[in-house]
Amino acid sequence: MKKYIIKRLLWLIPIMFIVSLIAFFLMYLSPGDPAAIYLSQGGDAPDAEALAALREQLGLNDPVWVQYGRWVGNIFRGDLGTSIFTGNPVAQEIANYFPNTLKLTALSMALTLAVSIPLGILCAVFENKWIDVVLRVLSFINGSMPGFFIAMLLILILGVRLRWLPTISSGSALGIWMPTFTLAIALSASYVRQIRNAIIEELGQDYIRMERAKGIKEWAVLFKGALKCALPRILTLAGLNFGALLGGTSIIEIVCTYQGLGRLAVNSITNRDYPLMQGYVLVMAFIYVIVNLVVDILHAYVDPRVKQQYMKSAVRKKVRLTDGSNKVVQ
């Protein structure tokens, strides 16, 4: 297992190299001169002399490879560049917004799972009974509503009518709940359906019939039997969403006025804040890869079959040693 983790971490090197190339050259090739944008922030056209000076200062006159090399070199020193728009270091900008996004992601993911696992199981157990039909219709309606619409509905109901939550999320302790509820509701739609289907599929397996034939109580058949087998699938689902949510959910953050990474990313794009954009892409790619690795490790932990796959090479060697023959156990 350790070997596997190290191998996966080593894979980070080529992945991050390619991501950095893409991030750098996308920005390099996109129209607009960063120096001109910086100087025209006040609304005036920049004068040629100042522009030339700034271009020299930012190193924009150097060959592209030199620029890329300098950028990567700085990254290794922990310097992601300086935001053109705010003048703050990019790393600091991202660090300011990241905790908010992390909190939002963790909360909404936890809420989603807490709601949709019980509901999914309920649907599976009462397959095609009224409770299942009602929940499926609800999740279908829910699933067809875009996230920003749910956000506005919640703002209208929880914020304006009932006045339970602030309509503007930033700068308030309760503020985080509006985007959390929005995300959890939006995600639950597909989660309930997928968990339901996963459990129904497991309940149809031979081992479930066998457990019943052994006189195992029904709750144990359901939780220790079926749910345990469906867990890896739920985990994969949650892992993918977790990674995506960490990148920020710009539309919902903007509708709820939440200070997260999604908002930062959108702002950096509208401001043509290239260093910030590049830094954002790089950091997000890194986090995404790490989240995936963690999910895969957890996967091996809940499903011994997966673990065995990771360790297959090791198992082969062991068999050869004890037998003295070349028999390979699959």
Partner: peptide, 11 residues
């Protein structure tokens, strides 16, 4: 049971 491998819990 009929299918011995599938009839034991996989995990």
């Amino acid at each position: 049971a009929q299918n011995p491998i599938e009839s034991l819990h996989p995990t």
